[in-house]
């Protein structure tokens, strides 16, 4: 397949996945709110930093209120990480690649684009927001499902999976970061008299990834920070766990030509992830570790781009 098309379809897939993940990230906070006692609020500005859009936020994130953050994360076209930007870019890339996908795929993306354009303004109110975010998640799931059900597992499909899993690994690490970044007032995390609330945060993190049941079946023990972090980073079976995403990447990469260098980089990232000791990190340095994981994920993207997307390709002998 054409290098240019491969690049476009990879980004189309990343941006669609980003739509779903942005919705999930916002859901962590929104769901958390419902479980907290009266008078306790969550830090909204943290969401902006974690989404990676901090440079584009024009206000001080420490004092940002819910409304401003929601407008920024949902509907701000100047924020490349907002929901509206993600769906717009996904649609642009899909317009360029629609001839390699089943034709219904473009219709799905186009439909979601118009849905968001017409409804995003309502997403600053909590009730409406919930409906909106659930709709985004289910429509992206429909998109992913239709690709799985109707698209040949050819090179284009490999690039779609590549984009999806890279984006998903990145965003899972960011969502874990919400838990690690003291989004709750300190008293509610440290004070044992507030025990019922101590792990609410981590349950919200799991729920926002639709992973609560899967976690309970797998871990058995009650929800606690260390197990949740290990599960979301190192579990090979849960589809949104970082290790699972990297495993999917390895599978896609193995199907593509000239893959040596990409496989090498990928193996090194997975080795580091497997050997990370979260019993130590959970108390000290988790946030820095997560930053580091994100940098590793970015390095995978770079080697993917250098291998398959750059216009200068060697003459086949």
């Amino acid at each position: 397949m054409l290098s240019r098309v491969a690049e476009r379809i990879y980004w189309m897939s990343r941006y669609m996945e980003r739509c779903e993940n942005a919705a999930r990230l916002i859901n962590v906070n929104t769901k958390l709110l419902l479980d907290l006692p009266r008078g306790v609020s969550v830090g909204w500005g943290t969401l902006v930093d974690i989404s990676g859009g901090g440079d584009f936020f024009q206000k001080d994130t420490d004092n940002a209120d819910e409304r401003a953050v929601m407008r920024f994360m949902l509907a701000d076209t100047n924020n490349p990480c907002s929901l509206i930007s993600a769906i717009t870019y996904a649609r642009e890339n899909a317009r360029i690649t629609r001839e390699v996908m089943p034709s219904e795929i473009y219709e799905l993306i186009n439909d979601l684009y118009w849905y968001l354009k017409e409804n995003l303004a309502r997403g600053t109110a909590r009730r409406e927001r919930h409906i909106l975010l659930e709709a985004v998640i289910s429509r992206v799931q429909q998109f992913t499902g239709m690709l799985a059900g109707c698209m040949s597992q050819n090179d284009a499909y490999s690039f779609i999976r590549l984009g999806r899993n890279l984006e998903r690994a990145d965003m899972t690490s960011r969502i874990v970061d919400v838990g690690a970044s003291r989004i709750l007032p300190r008293a509610y995390e440290d004070n044992s008299s507030n025990e019922p609330y101590a792990n609410i945060l981590w349950m919200s993190v799991l729920r926002s990834l639709s992973g609560y049941q899967m976690y309970r079946q797998h871990v058995l023990d009650r929800v606690n920070a260390e197990d949740v972090v290990m599960y979301l980073f190192q579990d090979p079976l849960f589809p949104r766990a970082v290790e699972h995403c990297l495993g999917e990447l390895a599978d896609c990469v193995a199907r593509l030509p000239n893959n040596d260098e990409v496989l090498r980089v990928l193996a090194s990232v997975r080795r580091q992830l497997k050997t990370a000791d979260f019993t130590v990190l959970i108390d000290d340095g988790l946030h820095d570790y997560i930053d580091n994981v994100q940098a590793e994920i970015a390095s995978i993207h770079q080697v993917v781009a250098a291998t398959w997307f750059l216009p200068e390709v060697q003459v086949a002998s």
Partner: peptide, 17 residues
């Protein structure tokens, strides 16, 4: 996406020309 080598036309693909 296209390139001409030795008066033949090729396209740049993920597997080469």
């Amino acid at each position: 996406d296209l390139v001409v080598e030795d008066d033949h036309v090729f396209m740049r693909t993920i597997g080469g020309l």
